[in-house]
């Protein structure tokens, strides 16, 4: 499972289903935006920006229980602090990040659509 929403309420309290849906939409939008920013920073070798973006996404990932994405972001935080991380290492990371982030985005969209349909009924 790429996401696990069982802990969402411990981060936001007991909110209504509609509020949860709204939160999830915002988190999903934010992930899509952050994904693009991270890929751009990595492509342009902007390591300090990449470090800051990965640091924030590392926390966001835990809101929806995306543990693997959390770990991948933590890795980026580590290697962007090295004096000269290799291009190969960075490319390999981008590939893994991209795959995981897209999987999480898709999982979030699936849940949103599912909840939305339940709501509509």
């Amino acid at each position: 499972m790429v996401i696990n929403l069982s802990k969402l309420s411990s981060h936001v309290g007991n909110v209504s289903a509609a509020d949860k849906l709204e939160l999830l939409i915002r988190l999903s939008n934010s992930l899509q935006q952050r994904h693009d920013e991270i890929i751009k920073a990595a492509t342009e070798f902007e390591l300090s920006l990449l470090n800051a973006l990965a640091h924030k996404l590392k926390t966001h990932a835990l809101y929806y229980g995306a543990i693997e994405l959390h770990h991948i972001c933590a890795e980026a935080e580590q290697f962007t602090l090295q004096a000269q991380p290799g291009t190969f290492e960075l490319q390999r990371w981008v590939k893994r990040f991209s795959a995981q982030s897209i999987a999480v985005q898709q999982a979030l969209i699936d849940v949103i659509q599912h909840w939305d349909h339940q709501d509509a009924r």
């Binding site: 936001v12 309290g13 007991n14 909110v15 509020d19 939160l23 924030k56 926390t59 809101y63």
Partner: peptide
């Protein structure tokens, strides 16, 4: 400084 973290914390804190 992170809007998303602030939004989530706000929900939690005000909800309490």
């Amino acid at each position: 400084d992170d809007n998303v973290s602030a939004m989530m914390s706000r929900r939690l804190i005000e909800g309490m």
